[in-house]
Design a protein around this nucleic acid. Structure first.
Lengths: 175, 175
DNA sequence: CAACCCATGTAAAAAGTTACATGATTAA
DNA sequence: TTAATCATGTAACTTTTTACATGGGTTG
């Protein structure tokens, strides 16, 4: 499981409340490791018990707590980064649908593929906007690596979008 | 959840025992929807209760059963293919590791990236062998669609491999 | 007769999703 | 003052992973 390590990374970049983390995940890191606020709060509580993070109450706010990474959390993150792991599994139901369509006869999947294509194009536009805004100028090591992560997303979206187009051609041509 | 539908699709292509399905998933469909034998057996039991599949004992084998898709299963598959769904989430821990490396300082990730690259290249070679063997000649609709599914895998592996190379260049250059 | 593949399961743990719930703060 | 957003949680459920377990058939 990597959610705690994604959270530790984000907290090292800048301390934040659970709510902030949830929004941060929606906006950036979460493109690569989505997490709901429920997961985040549960994980923060676990990490506090483990001594990896500490929460500081915020003056003037009844419930808000700002979390930061403690030395033990940093050590755990270093350990985890070093240990390696398997490439991710991707389970795409659309591919199963296509295969089912292949065996059952035409089932009108073009609209679903078009919808998927639109999603890839939208995500791609968002990634490119971030790339231009945050990584347009000269970069230090940290910036270059963060840019590389974004490029992974851009590459996959481009490839998926292009694949959708070939499938649409296939489906339209022999409709 | 799509595992039952992946199984129905596979059984429509050709009836099989749970064991056969597990091996079939290891070899082909499972690249796009991995499933362990435990999942498969449990799902077959559920689908039998639902009336979607029927198991036929095999003469001369104590335990072996061959499953096939019943009309209700076929109807369910048609329904599910039509209903659409979200694009898959991909959670790649290597990207989190890279981002942690970016904030913690160099943590020697090049070997992990190389390992990942080797994996992509191996998978790519396997996919290309299948493409040549099964989809080298003229194809009917079914073949064309199955080929399209394989091309999705090929495209993603190519893109991922290429990305690994750029990251290695980045990591080596500024080691 | 031993090793290996065939064939099927149970059990427990881990991870993620969905639904429900509540109160505080801020801006119109 | 009311609506939106901030902020935090609990509970139940589904799915996936990992470990354990067992016995039949085949081949050297």
């Amino acid at each position: 499981m990597s959610l705690p390590h994604a959270l530790l990374t984000s907290l090292l970049e800048r301390p934040a409340s659970g709510y902030d983390l949830a929004r941060r995940f929606d906006a950036s890191l979460g493109h690569f490791w989505p997490a709901s606020h429920q997961q985040i709060y549960r994980e923060l509580a676990r990490m506090e018990r483990a001594g990896w993070v500490a929460g500081q109450d915020v003056a003037g706010h009844a419930r808000k707590k700002v979390w930061s990474c403690r030395p033990a959390g940093r050590a755990e993150l270093v350990r985890w980064v070093g240990q390696g792991g398997q490439p991710p599994v991707v389970r795409d139901a659309l591919l199963i649908r296509l295969r089912a369509d292949a065996v059952l006869g035409p089932l009108d999947l073009a609209d679903q593929v078009r919808e998927r294509l639109a999603g890839h194009e939208a995500t791609l536009a968002a990634y490119r906007a971030i790339a231009e805004r945050d990584f347009g100028g000269p970069l230090d090591r940290r910036g270059r690596l963060q840019h590389a992560i974004l490029r992974a997303g851009i590459g996959l979206e481009e490839t998926s979008a292009q694949w959708c187009r070939t499938v649409l051609a296939e489906l339209d041509e022999h409709a």
